[in-house]
Structures are given as C-alpha cells and as structure tokens.
Design a protein around this nucleic acid. Structure first.
Lengths: 295, 295
DNA sequence: TAGATTGTTAATCGATTAACAATC
DNA sequence: TAGATTGTTAATCGATTAACAATC
C-alpha cells in the first residue's frame, strides 16, 4: 500500500472524507453501500419466512427507509426487480451479498478482550455474514490463555504470524484509547487493510487502509443534543446574555474570560479539563471500554 | 408526545430521515452536530495538557477533519474565535458542551445486561460527559441481583418507576433483537424520548422520540465492501455472466431462477435463509449481543 | 505594520425525493 | 386489458471545500 499517511478516511455518522475515498468503485454511492446491509437484513428475515417476492414499498418499510430511495439504491446494482411484481427475495439476497463481498470468507482479528471484545467475539452477526473470528488477542498475561466464545485469547506477539498465515485483512480494535494507535500500526504493518475502531481515538493510517469507527459516547451526545431541544427549548441553561450578544460584545467577553482564566466553565467543562477532580461513580477514564492495556 | 407512529428517524452511517427530523432546531445542521463531540474530545485533550489556544488547522488535524469544515461548523455556534490567534480552548469546551446539552445531567437506563451491557456500564465516557447510569435492567432472574460496574442489576418490572422517579429521558437497548421492540415500547410508554439501540432491529417509535442505532455487523459489512474492491477488483466472484448482461436477458434469467426455486444461491445467501443449517463456530443467532431475553 | 488566522462566500458535489413513463 | 410496480428523471436539498476579505 501507499506510504503517505492520512487521517482516517471514514467514520460513522456523517462521514468525513467520504468524498475523498476511492470507495465509489464501480459507481455505487457511499450512502447506498451503507444501506445495503439494512436491506440485506430485512431480506434475510423475509427469506426465513419463505416470502418469495417483495415490493419496494414493503421492503423499504421493513428496512426503515423510503421506497424511492430503495429503488434508487437498487438501480445502482442493476435491474433486479420485475415491474408489476417486485423483487425476488432469494435473488436479491444473493446479489446484495455478492456486492458487499459477503460471499467470501473474511477472517477477522479482535484486539483487546475486555467486556466489549467479549461481546463482539460472541456476536452472532459475525459468523452469519461470512465473517470468521480468526483470533482474539490481548497484551495482558492475565487474560491471555483464557477463552471467549470458545476461542483462546492469544498474546499480541502472535499478531503478525496470525495475520499472515490466515490472510486476515480486517482488524477490530477494542483496546483502551491509549493503545489504539499502536495496535493499529501493528495491524497495518502486518498487512491488515480495514480496521473497525471502537476506541475513542482518531487513528492515523496509510493511504489504502480503511478505518471505520464506532463511538458510543458520540451517539449519546447526539441524542442529548436533540433531547435538550425537546424539553421546552430553554431547559436550564447556565447561559450568559453575552453568549448570544452581537459579535464585538462577545469577542470582548471572550477576551475578558480568557484574562480571568476560564471563568466561563461549568461543571461539565471543568470536569472535562480535569477528570481526576470529579467524584462520580464511573471512575474509569474516558473510553476505557475494554479491560486491558496492550503493551 | 404525538400519537402517530413512524419508522425510526435516525441511525448511524448516512442517516435515513435526517432531513425529516426536527433536529435542525436553531439551525445547526445535523452533520455539524455529529461532529461537535469529535471537536469536544480533541479540545478536552488539549485542555488536559493546559494548551490555552488552538488554531482551526491544529484542532481540525486532531479531530480528523479538514479545517474549512471545522470553521464552518463553528460558525453555526457563533464567532468564538479570534482572528490571527485561534480559539480559546476552555471557552470552546464550554460552548460546545453547552450546545450539546452536556452541562446538564442525563440519567440513562441500560436494558439488557449481557457482555455489551456490561461494557457500556463500565464505559468511562458516559460519566465524563454528564451521562449517569440511573439503572441497569434485565428480565432474566439469573442476572437480576448481580452487579455490574458497581451497580445492581434490577428487574424490568422496575423500569417504569425508575424512569419516572429519576426523570430518565434516555434509554440504551442492549437486548437480543427479538426483545428490542417490546423494550422500546415500554421505555417510550414510561416517558423515555431518546433511545440508543444496539439490537439489530428497526425500531418503530412515535413522533417525538429519537432513535439512534449502533450496528456492529453493518460496519463490518461496509468494510468488507471496500476490502473486496482492493484485492484486484475481481477477487473470486461466483458471478454469472448473466448478472452483468443487459436488462431483458437478466430479467429472463431471474425469472428462470425463480421458477427453479432460488438456484442462484451461494454459501452466504443459503445460510442467511436458514441459519440453523450452518456448522460455523459462532453458534448464536444474528445479533445476540447480550446474554438475556427480557420477558 | 506584517503575519496569522478567522468567518463567510460561492461554487461544487453528493444525496434525497416526488413523479411518472416503461413494462410486467 | 387493467392494475401494479419498477427504474429513471429532474428538481431540490444539504454538505463540503477552496478561496479570500476581514481583522486581530
């Protein structure tokens, strides 16, 4: 892969860098690709119920999107429907699976076997979509040797040999944030070219490596934003009049605040600045989703 | 909240329904809201290192976005920077926290205490952002009474009283998919208006309730799509010539396939249709991320 | 003043949606 | 044939980005 480093190219919610990624290969828009798994899931459910065909309207409802969007999405894959009838469920399952690359086997390594690593190792959705857990890895000798989901937890030292021998191209990072970049570097060095990152860290990877991230805290913060706007719009803001004042006034206020040494801080802001200063129950630092800290 | 039901209005990757959500309240674009937590995280790190000011270029690099986008995003919040100087770190932490609603306390319930529920209960990022775990709930008597992250696991029966007494407006669903809609209904009925759903299910909620989902399997499938395109474009497709043939030919082929009873299936497609038929290691059904099945 | 950096403009790009002709 | 439903068009909307005037 290329040498030049670039900030991670993909993420979850909107998608910083989506436009830059080479991903539009064969012309399927990124937004469409992201919905294909939703359609596939809905189709799989229909298939299990032995439903032979489905209309765009029905399938769209099952997948939680609107039918025009679904038809547009499918039009990028080809004309797999029949006018006046709908789509053949089995055939569409096959086409979408193929398009997503799920007719291949994808060996995956999971690095960092804390609670989240355990949860992922046990995740049924992995195996049922062609993903196979090739190995569970951890740096903590206390964890290495134990087993999760019927697989032994192996030491980080084995990473390179496992990736090579099993042709692993996808890695999942469930370490604490402090270890994520190191782990990422080792994965990439070993030959992994797609990374799913659960650590709340921006990963830097070479060109040609895809990173997606799942960030639990961010999802909650987005909910909080909307929640705040529901509760009557002005819930209990500690907002100063100056904060909504015209430009010059605000600039002056900011300058004063700076001079005064951050007097505008509130509880949350102050705690962010010094996590050690707070006496809340959840004592772990931000993002310590898994238990152990690889070397 | 309103009576009419609608499919869930928000999700993760692109965002089906983003345009429809009332969320643009006070005019901050959804894409910007989704990035505010990233900026906040980067700013918090700078704050911990006692960095007083930061330029849009530096902060953008730390957050993994481009600086024009960052400045545009901040312009929706107000003019909090100083030309020629940059942004005051503490002040910006405060402003973003306030905008996201993080200066308030948000009690949260987590329903379904399997591995993932455990992982979330232990997640440090919760407490450090004003989120407080008000209760852990499960329907399985074997789990109820145990403790996770220092909190007792309580029975689902207590859901309504907890939500009411502690004014919980945010619920996290980490149950198996089969239980998710029921749990969702109870949460909503009890007064919860924001839901973070980890179960691979499309939830139906009344207007006024926000749903975001985190879907591990979907993220992996998106990676697989891109990965497939890296390995030389035509990896080992089981693709028939007919699949890329012009419309009429393809339609005829599909019809034949239908008549023949789904002969186009491959391994992945066949297993999707009948999960019980497969002999893979991950024996759990799709999406059984957590251990127990609430009533 | 000279250098630095913001905040905003305007152009561009990608995604969504309604509508409907094509066609089963 | 009449009814149903796809696949595509075109309009609209929202997000991204480069560029630069404003201004510290």
């Amino acid at each position: 892969m290329a040498i030049g480093r670039s900030p991670q190219s993909s993420s979850q919610t909107p998608d910083p860098g989506a436009a830059r990624r080479p991903s539009r290969a064969r012309g399927i828009p990124e937004a469409t690709v992201a919905r294909l798994p939703l359609y596939l899931r809905a189709l799989t459910a229909l298939s299990e119920r032995s439903v032979p065909t489905v209309s765009s309207e029905e399938l769209a409802a099952a997948a939680g999107v609107n039918s025009a969007k679904l038809r547009k999405d499918f039009s990028y894959l080809g004309s797999y429907g029949t006018r006046g009838v709908g789509y053949d469920v089995e055939y569409l399952v096959y086409q979408i699976s193929r398009e997503l690359g799920l007719t291949q086997d994808w060996p995956v390594v999971i690095v960092g076997i804390g609670n989240l690593g355990h949860a992922l190792a046990n995740y049924g959705g992995f195996a049922s979509r062609g993903f196979r857990v090739a190995a569970l890895l951890d740096a903590d000798p206390a964890v290495v040797g134990s087993s999760a989901a019927g697989l032994p937890v192996r030491h980080m030292d084995e990473l390179e040999s496992i990736v090579e021998s099993q042709h692993v191209s996808i890695g999942v990072i469930t370490t604490p944030p402090g270890a994520a970049q190191q782990v990422c570097d080792r994965l990439v060095e070993a030959g992994v070219t797609s990374i799913l990152n659960f650590a709340p860290t921006v990963l830097t990877v070479p060109d040609g490596v895809d990173v997606r991230k799942v960030d639990l805290s961010i999802e909650l913060q987005i909910l909080a934003f909307h929640e705040q706007r529901k509760a009557g719009d002005e819930p209990d803001r500690t907002e100063s009049v100056l904060d909504r004042a015209p430009g010059p006034v605000r600039a002056a206020a900011a300058k004063l605040r700076r001079a005064a040494g951050g007097s505008g801080k509130t509880r949350a802001a102050a705690e962010d600045a010094d996590p050690a200063a707070k006496g809340k129950p959840g004592k772990a630092g931000e993002g310590e989703l898994s238990a152990v800290m690889p070397a």
